[in-house]
Computed example of a mutant assay.
Amino acid sequence: MPAYAEPFALIALSAFCAIALSACGSGSSVSSEAEADSDGTVSGEVTATLHNAYQWFGANVTVALDGDTVVIEATGRPDHTSPYWNPNNASGLYVAPDPNVTTVSHMSPGYIEDYNNLFTLRAPASPTRAASSSATSLGPVGIAVSGAPIFNDQEGPNVNLEIGVIQGFDSNGAHTGPQTYHYHLEPKAISNDDEALVGVIADGFFLYGRQCYSTPGTYPTDLDASGGHTSVTQHSQGEAEYHYHIMNEFYLGAYYLLFPEDYQGTPSSISN
């Protein structure tokens, strides 16, 4: 497995011709792929394009277009500070727990550096709504722009977050375990009461902050049960598209859940 801060390679999808795209404001690796024949000629014309939003994923995420599928790979390690980094601060990202947010005795065991992961999501380049929604399960339900996975509102089978773990979350609504650092709540290092891109959910639809780009400074009022609606985003190049938001509704009177509801598209599994 790759070490933190070292570039990691995409698992070979097939022989391909890669065209690197510049990542505006981002260190992510973004490419488009078409299959190459043994004589070097390119066949299998790419019919999809890589969504502009993927350019804003960070350096711990690699994104590639494989035909009509987007392949997203992430190290599972965030690119921001947290008290879950090792206090020896070899990462340069350790911060002491904020006593107003985190109860040290409730922090999960394990430092971010203890785990070597490579989360992989193969999602449709042009996702569509499914005929019916489907429930999320335990484990990763999405990948954040930081490189860490997004989890739902369950800590275990039928175990809600308030049962002994939420007090150990850092200021990004995250903690470690099982074998990875992950978010359950609004990650303030990524989105803090704004319209910022948070990540991509396993059905291929993007997740944004609580506010709506289409109506600046306001919260969307037309969200469905999953926090989704159709409108223009800062990355949709003027076209309205379906996407999710962190819903502006309190959880336990103080928090905002990232993605507690059902998928509205057809989800793919996120392997590790």
Rank of each mutant, 00 (worst) to 15 (best):
P2C: 14
A3Q: 15
E6R: 15
S14Y: 12
A15H: 11
C17R: 15
A20C: 04
C24T: 14
S26I: 07
G27C: 08
S29Y: 14
V30E: 05
V30N: 09
V30Y: 07
E33N: 14
A36P: 00
D37P: 10
D37K: 14
G44T: 08
V46C: 11
H51K: 15
Y54F: 15
Y54K: 03
T62M: 08
T62W: 11
A64K: 05
D68W: 01
D68Q: 09
V70S: 00
V70R: 02
V70L: 03
I72A: 01
I72F: 03
G76L: 06
R77A: 13
P78E: 00
D79I: 07
S82P: 13
S82W: 05
P83I: 02
Y84Q: 05
W85F: 14
P87C: 01
D98S: 15
N100W: 04
M107R: 03
E113R: 03
A123D: 00
P127A: 07
A135L: 12
T136M: 13
P140M: 11
A148H: 10
A148D: 02
N152E: 10
G156T: 08
N160V: 01
G164N: 14
P178N: 13
Q179R: 11
H184R: 01
L185P: 05
P187K: 07
P187A: 13
K188W: 11
A189T: 12
S191V: 03
E195Y: 12
G199L: 06
G199D: 02
V200N: 03
I201G: 00
I201L: 13
A202Q: 08
A202Y: 00
F205K: 08
C212I: 07
T215W: 11
T215L: 06
T215Q: 11
P216D: 09
G217L: 15
G217K: 12
G217M: 14
G228I: 02
T230C: 03
V232R: 05
Q237F: 02
Q237R: 04
G238E: 14
E239D: 12
A240G: 09
Y242C: 00
Y244S: 06
H245E: 01
H245S: 06
M247L: 11
Y251E: 08
G253V: 12
Y256Q: 03
L257R: 04
L257T: 02
L257S: 05
L258G: 10
F259V: 13
F259L: 15
P260I: 10
G265K: 04
S271K: 09
